[in-house]
């Protein structure tokens, strides 16, 4: 690790003042991503601002929904009674990620900023436009005779600069429930929809979110889901537990009196450069009866624009099946189970 100066902030305003406009300063909360990247030499801050003591660790509920401090741990959010009852998709997504140890350390604010887990990003000897703009994308395998290892990469939202998949489970659920991110800067506070918070790589993959360099995430707001909403998160991975998603789906759904789908929000994980909201799937589902055919059509629509790379083409079929299974589970619990 590079040497750095450690300072402890005492309030959000103090944290922002200490950050100032120093591009070499980093906030540290849970540290589970930042310290890992510092050991690898990917992150080399000269100042580390500890934001674990800003008083942002509460969860409160009112008629608008749930207000979650940025420093609430993943464990506390997943185990919160209201979250389990009213936003089960959130609880399921968080518990599908990492291990208990890491969920105890990791914060919801940090989860929004966890960047990506692409092996090329994490290895400073490898080309990566996200880490070092202009060096190329190792995962694409652009150099003659050098393969790109891209089995974990995205098939939606990629660009010639970067094909990494967004690794978060929680953020997929945040997009599905239309959460808002609370952001503070020295000048003002603002709310950003979770869906808009993440930036597609385009030709500036090094800029991953809409959080400014002088801004701090102070919390997340979960709006009440529509009356009668069912929600669920399902993750498919290489092993039963403690692995990043190959594919995942978070869905919030309501049925009208005639049993037709009158509200659907669909977000996909493991397949997109960002937590991927699928308007195409939602449009295909709206006003449809909740049948296998309708679900299959929605899943096909979701991946109509998918671009597979050498080793990750399987994610298209797997991602479709994941979404169909969640939809089946939501309308016929148990129906999605395979014998």
């Amino acid at each position: 690790m590079n040497p750095f100066r450690y300072v402890k902030a005492t309030s959000p305003a103090d944290a922002l003042a200490r950050m100032g406009r120093n591009p070499g300063a980093r906030f540290v909360a849970g540290g589970t991503t930042l310290l890992d990247l510092m050991k690898l030499g990917v992150e080399t801050p000269d100042v580390l601002i500890d934001i674990n003591h800003l008083g942002l660790d509460g969860i409160t509920e009112d008629r608008h929904g749930l207000h979650i401090g940025a420093h609430v741990s993943n464990t506390d959010l997943a185990e919160h009674d209201s979250v389990k009852k009213k936003w089960p998709v959130m609880s399921q997504a968080i518990l599908a990620g990492a291990s208990t140890q890491l969920r105890n350390m990791a914060t919801v604010g940090g989860n929004l900023l966890q960047g990506n887990r692409c092996g090329y990003f994490r290895d400073v000897a490898m080309p990566c436009n996200r880490r070092d703009p202009g060096t190329g994308c190792g995962a694409l395998g652009e150099q003659p005779g050098v393969e790109g290892i891209n089995r974990y990469c995205a098939v939606l939202g990629t660009s010639p600069s970067c094909i990494a998949a967004h690794p978060s489970d929680m953020c997929v659920a945040l997009v599905a429930v239309d959460a808002k991110v609370k952001i503070s800067s020295p000048a003002f506070d603002r709310l950003e929809r979770a869906e808009d918070f993440f930036r597609l790589p385009g030709d500036t993959p090094q800029i991953q979110t809409r959080l400014g360099p002088d801004e701090l995430i102070t919390g997340i707001e979960l709006p009440e889901l529509p009356a009668g909403a069912r929600s669920m998160y399902l993750k498919v991975r290489d092993r039963t537990s403690y692995a990043y998603a190959l594919t995942s789906a978070a869905v919030v759904l309501t049925l009208d009196a005639k049993g037709r789908i009158d509200h659907a929000r669909v977000a996909l994980g493991g397949v997109g450069s960002v937590p991927w909201r699928s308007h195409e799937a939602e449009n295909a589902l709206l006003s449809s009866p909740p049948t296998e055919e309708a679900f299959r059509a929605a899943a096909e629509a979701a991946f109509a624009g998918a671009v597979p790379y050498q080793y990750n083409g399987f994610k298209i079929a797997l991602g479709q099946d994941t979404l169909v299974r969640v939809l089946n589970e939501l309308v016929r619990p148990g129906a999605g189970e395979r014998p």
Binding site: G30, D50, M105
Partner: peptide, 21 residues
């Protein structure tokens, strides 16, 4: 998880946090 310890009765990976924190 080899480095698991309890901090305030919660299990954490002690390799991913600084002593000063």
């Amino acid at each position: 998880g080899a480095c698991t310890v309890l901090v305030a009765d919660r299990r954490i990976d002690s390799c991913l946090t600084l002593a000063v924190m």
